[in-house]
Amino acid sequence: MRKDLPALTAGELAQSRRRLIIDGIGIAVSALAFGFVYGLAAEGAGLSPIEAVAMSVIVFAGAAQFAAIGYITGGLAWPAIILLTALINARHLLYAAALAPWLCDVPAPRRALMAHVLTDEAFALAIAHFTRLGRTDERGYWIAAIGSTWIPWNVATLAGVLIGREIPSPERFGIDIVFPAAMVGLAAGLITGRREVVAAIVGAVLGVAVGLLVSPSLGIVAGGLLGPAAGLAVPERAPRNELPA
């Protein structure tokens, strides 16, 4: 963390955490809905409750878990499932690299734990919170990662695999829109200048184009890698906040 930053008042920290929690409620609802559907799908694919929950606790990556259920149902060999999981989750490299400058003062053992719970949602909430504050808030990271995602995802997985067949699909109620809408809304909250606007637009366009031509997972990686490069090509106006140096 930068040592020359002005002191943060308790009110500023509380205000940013309040917003983190409010934003996190929407994410938690999405995690509950998708975790439930995942549990139901896992049960349908023949996974026992222990196996379904082990996947949510150990892998803790929704897209890869849903894909794995499809692979298992299709009879794909384990080495192929493991390789595809690595490819789908390669985007986490981008998240971790973007968070690393903020978290470099956190002790390594805790960073190692933080890595395990780093998801799309945790990244989005945490980086928005850090950017608002202009500094790191470790407790805020745990609120984002554990409170809004890890607990709801795992509780919902267990519920889905145990009682899923008795409850109608949450997609009927539009819950599936929460995840993409939250990602776009959180991206908008990070825009502080023209560079971010260009990075976001190019990232979205490339994501869709590569997603159509190759695969959605690679589209996200391509958008996340090349969008920032396009943003850097734009002359910068003074941003509100900077990464810690």
């Binding site: 894909a67 499809g70 985007r91 981008l94 998240y95 690299a97 973007a98 690393a100 400058p101 799309d120 990244f123 989005a124 980086i127 928005a128 950017t131 829109i177 995840f179 993409p180 809408a181 990602m183 776009v184 959180l186 991206a187 990070l190 825009i191 560079r195 971010e196 606007v197 990075a199 976001a200 637009i201 190019v202 990232g203 979205a204 366009v205 490339l206 994501g207 869709v208 997603g211 159509l212 695969s215 959605p216 589209g219 996200i220 391509a222 958008g223 996340g224 090349l226 969008g227 920032p228 490069a229 943003g231 850097l232 910068e236 900077e242 990464l243 140096a245």
Partner: peptide
């Protein structure tokens, strides 16, 4: 660092766009 600062809006926008504009099985 300037590049990394732009990763978040780019990748979140890509996730949102891909999830809402691309449909169909693998």
């Amino acid at each position: 660092f300037a590049y990394l600062r732009l990763v978040a809006p780019a990748v979140l926008a890509a996730i949102g766009a891909v999830n809402v504009l691309l449909v169909g099985p693998r």
